[in-house]
């Protein structure tokens, strides 16, 4: 039965069916399929090295660990622990992301030994001074955007769908994104971000994809180019672990202080 559903849903993406489909429906279908394929990983852990590159080529490196918890029908929960630079070591950031309302955020400051809730509707600001905005790093949810299929294209050796998406969140920093999703695995290969005045702001390229649990693809290199400012940020992910046996209670305000 399950197999049948899968075949049917895949069939719905085939071209002969697309004739009756609007571009919006096709775009949404592609997004749903991408989300469907990335469902069921439960929770994960990974290390990330973030390299900031200035216009003149100066570099600066930060290191963090990210733990994520899959939440059905809502944004995921994530816990970020800062390791480098040394001054922020042990700082932990808990976030419950939501599609259309402000995220819930808490920060544990070890120097103050306090957990602070941050109330802010901003998701568009830079993450740790990088070219990645908060909203670029939070989990992908179908509801965060509306979609429009643009065309089929080729990106390097990959056949891709080109799908435009429009943020539903009022305070998003973007008017639209152009996503390049490979047809075979539904991985996002590239995203072009257009700012509030609809000018190209940034280009994200996801490379070095690796498959985990024989099912879930994760890009281990993410390169964000700010074409307006000439700055760049590269994320290198490593030590991915899935289904590590953590639960809701590990993603709570109280858990923040205990984090090492």
């Amino acid at each position: 039965m399950r197999k049948l559903v899968l075949i049917l849903s895949l069939l719905s993406l085939l071209p002969f069916n697309a004739i009756a489909e609007t571009a919006e429906e096709k775009g949404t279908a592609i997004a749903k399929e991408a989300e469907r394929r990335n469902t069921g990983w439960e929770n994960s852990k990974a290390k990330m090295v973030m390299t900031l590159i200035s216009k003149s080529g100066d570099k600066s490196v930060r290191q963090i660990r990210v733990r994520s918890l899959e939440v059905e029908n809502d944004g995921d929960k994530s816990l970020t622990i800062f390791d480098e630079p040394k001054d922020v070591e042990g700082t932990a950031f808990l976030s419950f992301s939501h599609a259309t309302v402000p995220d819930e955020q808490w920060l544990y400051l070890p120097a103050l030994k306090r957990v602070k809730r941050i109330s802010s509707s901003n998701k568009s600001g830079p993450f740790m001074g990088s070219e990645f905005a908060f909203e670029d790093l939070s989990s992908f949810e179908v509801d965060k955007y509306t979609y429009k299929y643009l065309r089929d294209d080729k990106l390097g050796e990959h056949e891709v769908y080109v799908v435009e998406s429009y943020p539903t969140y009022e305070h998003s920093g973007y008017t639209r994104l152009i996503n390049y999703i490979d047809k075979k695995e539904y991985r996002i290969m590239k995203i072009e971000f257009y700012d509030r005045k609809n000018a190209l702001l940034k280009v994200l390229e996801n490379t070095d994809y690796k498959k985990f649990l024989d099912q879930f693809w994760r890009a281990t290199t993410m390169t964000m180019d700010n074409v307006q400012k000439g700055k760049k940020t590269v994320l290198n992910w490593s030590d991915y672990e899935f289904k590590t046996g953590v639960d809701e209670s590990d993603f709570s305000r109280n858990a923040l202080k205990r984090i090492r």
């Binding site: 900031l52 100066d58 901003n122 600001g125 001074g129 920093g173």
Partner: peptide, 29 residues
């Protein structure tokens, strides 16, 4: 020193696009 660094981290994370601190602080702080 660590407290100041953590304040900055906190503040940077709560700002919207375009209102960041790059006009006052360089890349590696």
């Amino acid at each position: 020193k660590d407290l100041a660094a953590q304040y900055l981290l906190l503040y940077e994370m709560s700002l919207p696009q375009g209102l960041d601190l790059t006009n006052q602080i360089n890349l590696d702080k």
